Amino acid sequence: MTYDSAATRSKILAAAIEEFSDHGFAGARIDRIAEAADANKRSIYVYYTNKELLFAAALHQVINELNEATPLTEDDLPGYAGRMFDYLTQRPAALRMHLWRQLERPELGPDAADVYSEKMARMTADSSAAHLPPTDLLVLITGLTQSWILAPRDLLTAVSTADPYRPERLAEHRAVVVEAARRLCAPSGSNRTPE
């Protein structure tokens, strides 16, 4: 049987994403990653050099997959919010990895500043752009997409003890996220209800 180094690297990276998303950088253990990947520790160090570079590779993988699956469309931010909400509720490891990055290693991972700058420049140039500064608007929309996942479970079950992650409830909240994003993007004064 021939050794497949690409398959081994892929298994190591998948196991690392699970380990880092569950335990963060500080809590992750190379032994557990090696066991989950059915690889030896030495191969992890051969392919990724050290734990920090493995964490960086895991971040790149997760963030690139998220960006490919949910491209930022500056002309349809409510649609973007809905797609991002779907992605994060279906793949909670992506949000956990992002949070661990913010807490422990904010300097690691792909630098998306150029991508965001380009999108925000287009939003600024668009005459139908919202009344909010582009950076603030994207921060608010990003927060909307993560709000259900980050909210305390006690809050989500305060009115109903039913599972807040059941498909029907997620669909209801997704509609709220999209509508809130639509209102954020609307020109000033267009969200007011008649008196």
Rank of each mutant, 00 (worst) to 15 (best):
I141Y: 04
H98P: 08
C185Y: 09
S147H: 07
E118R: 14
E35H: 14
G109R: 01
A7V: 09
H23N: 12
N40T: 04
I44W: 11
V178M: 11
L103D: 13
D111H: 03
A39P: 00
A37S: 07
M84R: 12
E18S: 10
A162K: 00
R183S: 13
G79V: 11
F25C: 04
E195C: 06
P194K: 12
Y47D: 12
R101E: 10
G82Y: 13
S21N: 02
R101N: 14
L156M: 02
E74F: 14
A93T: 00
A69S: 12
D163N: 13
E195L: 09
L54V: 13
T161W: 02
T161E: 12
R183I: 11
L138I: 06
L103R: 14
W100T: 06
Q61K: 15
S147W: 09
E107N: 09
K51T: 11
M84E: 06
D114C: 06
V46W: 14
A39V: 00
Y48D: 02
S117Y: 04
E104L: 03
A186Q: 04
T89Q: 15
V178I: 12
S190R: 11
V62F: 11
R96D: 13
F55Q: 13
I149D: 14
I63Y: 04
L132T: 02
A129V: 00
A171S: 07
H60A: 05
A15I: 02
N64V: 08
D76S: 10
A57I: 03
R153G: 02
D38E: 15
L13H: 08
Y165Q: 02
A34E: 03
A57F: 08
L150G: 00
A186F: 01
E179F: 04
R29A: 12
A39Q: 03
I30H: 02
I63K: 06
V62Y: 11
F25L: 11
D76Y: 10
N40C: 10
D163S: 09
F20P: 05
A57L: 03
I17S: 05
A14D: 10
I63L: 10
N191G: 15
Q90R: 09
M1D: 07
L150Q: 01
T70G: 11
D163I: 07
T124S: 15
S127L: 06
C185P: 04
Y3N: 10
G24W: 05
A15T: 08
D126C: 04
G79P: 05
R9F: 03
N50Q: 04
G79W: 01
E65Q: 03
M1V: 02
A39R: 00
H23Q: 11
P187C: 01
P106E: 05
D126N: 14
R101K: 10
E179N: 05
V176I: 11
I141H: 02
N64H: 09
L138C: 06
P78M: 12
A94I: 01
D4Y: 09
M1H: 08
L103C: 07
L59K: 14
A130M: 00
S190G: 03
A36W: 06
L95N: 09
D4W: 08
H131L: 00
A14V: 03
S160Q: 04
R122N: 09
G79M: 06
F85I: 09
V159L: 11
D111Q: 00
L53C: 06
V139D: 09
T124N: 13
L77G: 08
F85C: 10
T161N: 03
S147Q: 03
A15M: 08
T2W: 07
S117M: 03
V159Y: 12
A181K: 06
A94Q: 00
I44N: 08
G82T: 13
A151D: 10
